[in-house]
C-alpha cells in the first residue's frame, strides 16, 4: 500500500500552497485518493505558510498530517518547526539555498537541494518550488512527472502554457539533484 503524508512549508510567496495543490491534482488524475489542507492562521505576507497533502491508494482518513512520510521545507523556520514531524526513515527535503542549517535528525533521509539557485540558473526564481517537487517525485514515485505537468496545464490555463517547458526543466533539475 502506497501512502504519502506530506508537509510542505515555507514563507508566503514561495509557492508552497500551489506545490501541494499540483501534487494533489496529479494524484487525483492518477485515480488515487487525495486531500490538501492549508494552514490558514493569522499570518501576514512574508509569514510562514504550510499545507498537508495526502496521496494514497486507500481512502484518506484524517486530512491532517501529524506524522509525515515527507516534509519539504523551503525556509529555516519551517525546518525548525517540521523536522520533528517526519517519521523514522522518512524523507526531509531542505531548500539549502535559504537554509544553512543541517537537520538535527539522524534517523531520516535528508536531502539538501539548492532550489533557489537552480531556479535562478533556469531564469525564474518562482520555479524553486517545482525544483523541490521534482526532487520529491523522483524519490517517492508517488505520481509521475507527466501527471504534474498535466495538472499544471489545467491550473495555468491556455494563456500561460508557454511556462510549461521551464517548469518541466525545473522538475528535471530537482530530480537530478537527488539522483547524484
Amino acid at each position: 500500500m502506497a501512502e504519502q503524508q506530506v508537509i510542505i512549508a515555507g514563507f508566503g510567496g514561495q509557492g508552497v500552497m500551489s506545490m501541494g495543490q499540483l501534487l494533489t491534482y496529479a494524484g487525483m488524475l492518477e485515480d488515487k485518493n487525495v486531500s490538501w489542507l492549508p494552514s490558514y492562521g493569522p499570518e501576514m505576507r512574508g509569514g510562514t505558510a504550510n499545507c498537508n497533502v495526502i496521496v494514497s491508494d486507500n481512502p484518506v482518513g484524517s486530512p491532517l498530517v501529524t506524522e509525515a512520510t515527507t516534509a519539504i521545507v523551503m525556509n529555516l523556520p519551517s525546518l525548525d518547526k517540521f523536522e520533528g514531524r517526519v517519521v523514522e526513515d522518512g524523507i526531509l527535503l531542505i531548500n539549502s539555498s535559504l537554509i544553512d542549517k543541517k537537520t538535527s535528525r539522524t534517523d531520516i533521509r535528508a536531502y539538501e537541494i539548492p532550489a533557489n539557485d537552480i531556479a535562478n540558473e533556469l531564469g525564474n526564481i518562482r520555479i524553486a518550488n517545482m525544483v523541490m517537487l521534482g526532487a520529491y517525485i523522483e524519490l517517492t514515485n508517488i505520481v509521475s512527472k507527466e501527471s504534474i505537468l498535466e495538472s499544471l496545464k489545467k491550473v495555468l490555463g491556455p494563456s500561460k502554457e508557454k511556462l510549461i517547458p521551464i517548469n518541466e526543466k525545473a522538475l528535471e533539475r530537482g530530480a537530478q539533484a537527488v539522483r547524484q
Binding site: 494533489t24 487525495v34 490538501w36 489542507l37 492549508p38 490558514y40 486530512p63
Partner: peptide, 10 residues
Amino acid sequence: DGVIGQMMEP
C-alpha cells in the same frame, strides 16, 4: 468546520 471549509478533495 474550518477543515471542511478550507481543505481540497476530489
